[in-house]
Each structure stands twice: as C-alpha cells, then as structure tokens.
Computed example of a mutant assay.
Amino acid sequence: MKQVFLTVLGILALLKGYTQQAPDTTGFEARKLKIEEINLVSSYYGQTGDHAAVTGGIGTQKLTDIANVFDIKLSKYDRKLRKHTFGLEVGIDHYSSASSDKVDLKANSSASYSDTRIYPSLTWSVENEKKGTTFSLGASSSSEFDYQSFGVNVGFAKKTRDRNGEFSARLQGYFDQVKLVTPTELRPGGGSDENSYGSDNRTTIAGSLSWSQVINKNLQVMLLADLVHQQGFLSLPFYRVYFNDGTVHQEKLPDSRFKIPLGFRANYFLGDRIIIRTYYRFYKDDWGITSHTANIEVPVKITPFLSVSPFYRFYNQSAVKYFAPYGQHTGSDTYYTSNYDLSKFNSNFLGAGIRLAPPKGVFGMQHFNMLELRYGHYTRSNDLNANSISLNIRFK
C-alpha cells in the first residue's frame, strides 16, 4: 500500500501547477482545447486460495496486484459548435503470483513470479448537441511478458428529441498474440530458453447495444445487450491438467467461443440524500457457462460534500463442459481444464466507499474537486478470498 499512496502523492505534486492556473478569459475560450477532467486511480488487490490452475487445480492461488491508472479528458468546440472530446488513459499494473511461479516446479523462484502490464488507450468523440448525436473512435493496447493485445472500437449514440432517452451502439475488436509459455516438464528436453517459445493468436469481436431512459425525476433505467465472439488460441499455455492415469497435460479448450451478456440498470433517487443503484446481468456462452450477477450500491449523502456508498454484489455461475478437478479427466476427453475460474461457484463482494467533494475543492484546491476511497472483500465458494482497496482523485 505504501507504493500506491506514494505514487498518488507524486502525481499530485506534478499537477499542483494545473490547480493554480487562472481561467482563460479571452473571447476564444470556447474553441480552445481545455482540460475537462483528470482522474488518478491507485489500487491494491490481494487474494488467497487453494486451486491454482498452473498446478492442475491444486496449490496456492496467492496473488498481489498494484495498479495505477492516469486518465485525462480534453475538449473543444469546432466552428459548427460540435463538442470534441479527447481521452488518454495509461495504466500500469505490477503483480506477483505464487501460482504462476510454478510454471517451473523445480525452481524456488522463476521469471513467472512477477510481471508488469502496461495498457494505454486513446479515445475521440464528437457530439452534436443540437442533433443529440455522438460519434466515437478508440484504440488501445496491452503489453506484458507473455501477452500482447491491440484493440479498436467505434461507437454511435443518439438522444431522443426530449433528451430523456438515448440509444447507443458500439463495435469493438481485440487482436491478441499469446506467447506459448508451457510448463517446463512439457517442453522438448525440459528447456527454459525463451527463444524456444512459440506464439499463437486470438481475436475477439464484440458488439454492444444499450438504451437508457429517464422515467421520471426519481427513476432512470438502462437496458444493455452484447454479442461476443472469440476465435483462436483460447487456452492458457502454462495451465496444467492432470488425468486420472497420473499423466500431466497442457490445458486444451475449443478455438472458438460465443458469449451473450444481457443487462439491466436502474437508479432511483430517494430524496436529495440517497440514491439506490441496482444492476442485473444474465450471461450465457456455448462452453456451458450460465451466470447471474446482481449488484446494489446505495450512496448516502452525510453532508452536501461527503457521502458513503455501501455496496454488495452476488454472482453465480455453472461450470464449462470441459472442467474437472485435479486427476479426474480421462484420455477420452477432447477438451480439458482444471481452472476453477471455469468451475461452478458462487461469489460475494461486499464493501463501501467514502467520497469527498467540497465546493471549494479538496484541501482548498479549487480544481481538486473529488477524492474517493473504496474497500471491498471478495469471497468465492471454491475457497478463494480477496481484498481490494482503491483511491481515486479527480481534477476538474
């Protein structure tokens, strides 16, 4: 946690000059590119468990992850009074994983013990406020030792004439390359030369539709639907599977997957101090998973600038057709995995957030307009437990 908060404090110092800038009072202010919002998020995640997929569904799942995300939004109006918004996000995660360290069962500590992931993204949108339309484009990438990904997306949104409803559509594509880091005992000659690793590809195409509607001054709802298709290498190469004859194999899953998530959101404003936010999602795919997610969060204003937000999420899923625990797969199985993320389980995520947004700015800095701290505890019915804490600061 010390590293997380030191990172935030360092970025705060860099942005001090921005918080002291005087507003632009020239006659061309509306057409100048200006900073609309800056968000800084630092988080810590730690988990424990006893069903590591790297060792065939048994063994420690201990993992820690420290993440830092910097997000900035800039905007300007063109000569036709269309609003252009530009977004830049850069994320850096560093994790250490006791289970990934077991890619080599004989090593006390291997190169797989820890890794750093860097994931920048760029977005651009243009909104015609008169017509109520928004068009957007985006690109992203993610890079770590054994995984490279590039993504693109395009979106369109249209508000109703009374501006109480909005339809949006989005198409996303992700093009990944997976380095085939196999368990050492399954490599030819048991070698560890990184140059001997092969690679394979994975493509994900996702289409999203949503409809949001203001029902009345108290109630807002949204319907969401997605279609997702994946093609290519969908296994993880360093996940072991132990058969009932004692032999060890590399996880093998089909090379295509089709997913259908459907969701519903409803926000109800219970007076001036309480909001009830609810969410439900139904999910089904052709590997055999059916899942249900139900979430509720209730932000409560303690004062006009201080609020607390308790939240709870319940999740339930069935197992994929290809899952079996350690030592229970047979030689007749075409596909096989002992990854407990693909098993049948229930999970609970419970926590709360505290949000500070004084009218004169946090610590008296006018542009430093929000600080939020959130904590959550996660439990899963197949013996996985985790804790997470995040700090979000916003400049505007």
Rank of each mutant, 00 (worst) to 15 (best):
V320C: 02
L253P: 07
L270Q: 12
Q250V: 06
Y239Q: 08
F269D: 15
G263R: 06
Q250H: 09
T330S: 11
A294I: 15
E251R: 13
G271Q: 04
D272V: 10
N316V: 04
F282S: 11
V308Y: 09
Y322T: 03
F238A: 03
I274D: 07
T278R: 09
T303P: 01
S256Q: 15
E297K: 06
Y315E: 10
Y279N: 12
H292S: 05
F238D: 04
Y322K: 07
A319Q: 12
P299H: 04
V248N: 11
R240W: 06
P310R: 05
L262C: 07
R273M: 02
F264W: 03
Y283V: 03
I276C: 14
R257L: 05
H329Y: 04
G288S: 07
D245T: 04
L270E: 13
S318Y: 01
Q328P: 10
I289D: 11
R257E: 02
A294H: 14
R240L: 05
L270C: 13
I276H: 09
Y312W: 10
K284M: 10
I274N: 15
R273G: 01
Q317Y: 06
A319Y: 01
R313E: 15
F238V: 02
R273Y: 00
V298D: 02
F238G: 02
V298C: 08
Y280E: 11
Y283D: 10
F238S: 07
E297N: 05
R273K: 13
P237L: 11
R281Q: 08
F243L: 04
L236V: 03
Y312P: 15
D286A: 05
N267T: 10
D272Y: 05
Y268I: 01
Y283E: 15
Y326I: 11
